[in-house]
Amino acid sequence: MPDACFGEAAVAPVFAPVVPSARAAKTDEPLFDAVATPNDSGTRNGRLIFVAVLTAYFAITLFAWLRLGAWPMALYSLIVLAFALWSVIGDARRRRQSERIRVWPDRTLVERIDGAGRCTSSEWQTGWLRLTVEHGQPGGPCLRLTSHGRSETVGAFLTGRERLDLANALARHLGPAAAVR
């Protein structure tokens, strides 16, 4: 499903350069363009089937408890159904998150979509931008972009291995970007 901010590019994570750096120096295309999204092993149809089966199961058990006159158990079934649906909605919010990092010779742009669908962006001067990988964090390494007293964490929803891959790909393009200017 395309996003409002990123369009079709947000459909799949990409950690490779979009165009070679020699060509990017002559055009307005970025040297590096990565879209990071959270892991998602399910499909839209699979989630719909899961919710349908879950709802049918709880409707049947709710009817059975009410038919037997065990209304406290029926109330318990409704509470469990509410928590299950809350979990599915929370997963949908998590899957909506994404980050897009683009590097040009003179600037770097970080665009974010949070779980509520709000778009934010921050722009950095590529020549002054530093990428720091902080190891020893509870969830794995932490990627931090810093420049001129500002600091921003990127890829927080990625796994530790994916963050390291993103850091390596980004570091390969931040150095040449300064040389292209």
Results as ranks from 00 to 15, higher is better:
173 H>N: 03
165 D>H: 11
180 V>P: 01
23 R>I: 10
147 S>M: 08
155 G>P: 13
79 I>M: 12
85 L>Y: 00
52 A>I: 04
152 E>F: 07
50 F>I: 02
28 D>S: 06
174 L>W: 01
98 S>H: 08
18 V>W: 15
77 S>N: 05
164 L>F: 07
158 L>H: 00
48 L>M: 14
48 L>Q: 00
37 T>I: 10
83 F>T: 04
88 V>Q: 09
89 I>H: 11
122 S>K: 09
61 T>R: 10
91 D>L: 11
12 A>D: 02
99 E>Y: 07
109 L>Q: 07
158 L>I: 01
127 G>Y: 07
107 R>A: 03
14 V>T: 12
43 T>C: 08
101 I>L: 14
92 A>N: 14
54 L>W: 12
46 G>M: 03
39 N>Y: 05
55 T>D: 04
147 S>K: 03
135 H>K: 10
176 P>E: 02
36 A>Y: 05
105 P>C: 08
12 A>M: 13
149 G>F: 03
48 L>W: 05
111 E>N: 14
147 S>N: 11
78 L>Q: 01
63 F>P: 00
149 G>E: 11
89 I>S: 06
55 T>G: 09
91 D>F: 10
116 A>P: 07
42 G>R: 00
92 A>I: 00
72 P>T: 09
110 V>D: 10
54 L>P: 02
109 L>G: 03
70 A>T: 03
95 R>M: 05
91 D>W: 12
82 A>M: 11
42 G>M: 09
28 D>N: 08
18 V>N: 12
156 A>H: 10
136 G>M: 06
56 A>C: 04
16 A>D: 12
30 P>N: 13
40 D>R: 07
8 E>S: 01
73 M>N: 12
85 L>C: 13
38 P>E: 02
4 A>D: 13
68 L>Q: 15
52 A>L: 14
14 V>M: 13
7 G>T: 02
156 A>C: 04
169 A>P: 05
59 A>S: 11
155 G>M: 09
113 I>G: 01
132 T>Q: 13
47 R>M: 00
5 C>P: 09
19 V>T: 03
155 G>L: 06
161 R>Q: 14
118 R>T: 09
159 T>D: 02
104 W>Q: 03
39 N>T: 13
112 R>A: 07
54 L>I: 03
72 P>N: 05
25 A>Q: 10
168 N>S: 08
47 R>K: 02
52 A>D: 15
58 F>N: 04
61 T>D: 07
110 V>W: 00
117 G>Q: 04
164 L>S: 06
87 S>T: 09
38 P>D: 09
140 G>I: 13
94 R>H: 14
25 A>S: 04
85 L>E: 00
51 V>D: 12
123 E>C: 01
157 F>Q: 01
17 P>T: 07
107 R>L: 05
125 Q>Y: 05
97 Q>R: 15
31 L>R: 11
68 L>C: 06
129 L>T: 10
3 D>Y: 11
1 M>D: 04
77 S>V: 01
112 R>H: 06
171 A>F: 02
102 R>V: 11
170 L>W: 01
134 E>W: 05
12 A>Y: 09
25 A>P: 02
124 W>L: 04
125 Q>A: 09
62 L>K: 02
103 V>C: 09
12 A>V: 11
